[in-house]
């Protein structure tokens, strides 16, 4: 087999993002990460829902399941349970992951299926033209909230750490080196890996700009212990205006499928059914 190149991950689908969109950084880095990990396109399954960010699955040459808004994690978990030999990566926007799909996010962390959930968090609803998302700042004036958003923004990192999510990280779409490091680590991590990727929305959000992130982001250094859950929670809840980048928290909980393994086999085959059922029928006597 010929050696993989970056071209193997390029798709011919025309890109529909706005010029300068933060999604481009994530797209380029995702392709480089897959190459760095040596994962051929046919062994990768990208799952997404609806919005601007989820279109990424069409812009990468790989298997793609572009499902319903907010339900991508549900479909992805099942696909991974069935096709355990695929590398499954979910891409959501902040609306799909934390709004429409909030309940699924909570339960995906509990279930711990071995997949990576990348949330493109731009703090705004882009495709529907600039309404508040679950992570829009309180007081920020956006569409439908002319007097400013009254609700508090969700803190997805603190939420995930509090639920013992097996891998919790944050990165920045414009920091390609850091993002690739985090994506590779998340994909390699066995279990549900959650990566919140901050990105500016150049069309609708004048607050979370490239400059804003340049000013407020800091890299977690060696003094941060990602196995210390309370320490990680303190970082996520700091409320000091600084934005941490890096792996905040990780644990070694076993992923779901290995726990259930005995007798299950490959769920894509059912040729042995007659023999297996014949034994089961005797219980109904």
């Amino acid at each position: 087999m010929a050696e993989l190149t970056l071209n193997d991950y390029k798709s011919k689908v025309e890109n529909a993002w706005c010029p300068g969109c933060g999604n481009f950084g994530i797209l380029n880095t995702l392709q480089k990460s897959l190459l760095a990990l040596g994962l051929p396109p046919e062994r990768v399954l990208l799952v997404s829902g609806i919005g601007q960010a989820p279109k990424i699955v069409h812009y990468v040459h790989a298997n793609a399941f572009d499902g319903l808004h907010g339900r991508e994690v549900s479909s992805a978990q099942a696909a991974k349970i069935v096709a355990d030999d695929l590398t499954v990566i979910v891409h959501s926007g902040d609306g799909g992951a934390y709004g429409e799909g909030g309940n699924h996010f909570l339960h995906a962390m509990r279930r711990n299926v071995d997949l990576t959930h990348v949330v493109h968090d731009n703090h705004i609803y882009g495709l529907t033209k600039g309404q508040a998302s679950p992570t829009t700042e309180q007081g920020q004036k956006v569409a439908v909230h002319p007097d400013g958003v009254a609700a508090l923004p969700m803190n997805p990192l603190a939420l995930a750490i509090s639920q013992s999510c097996s891998f919790v990280a944050q990165s920045l779409s414009s920091n390609a080196g850091h993002l690739q490091e985090i994506l590779c680590e998340a994909i390699r991590h066995p279990g549900f890996s959650f990566v919140n990727v901050l990105q500016p929305c150049v069309s609708w959000d004048p607050v979370h700009t490239y400059a804003h992130y340049q000013k407020h982001c800091y890299l977690l250094d060696a003094s941060h212990d990602p196995t210390d859950q309370l320490g990680a929670l303190a970082v996520a809840l700091a409320h000091d205006g600084r934005i941490p980048l890096g792996v905040l928290y990780r644990n070694e909980r076993p992923a779901l499928r290995p726990i259930m393994e005995s007798g299950i086999g490959d769920l894509r085959t059912c040729t042995d059914r007659p023999a297996r059922l014949a034994a089961v029928f005797n219980r109904f006597r």
């Binding site: 339900r71 978990q77 099942a78 696909a79 096709a83 894509r268």
Partner: peptide, 15 residues
Amino acid sequence: IAAINMVAGASYAGA
């Protein structure tokens, strides 16, 4: 909602 979307994902994957 999760159930039916899981069914879609599992079926796509081959079950």
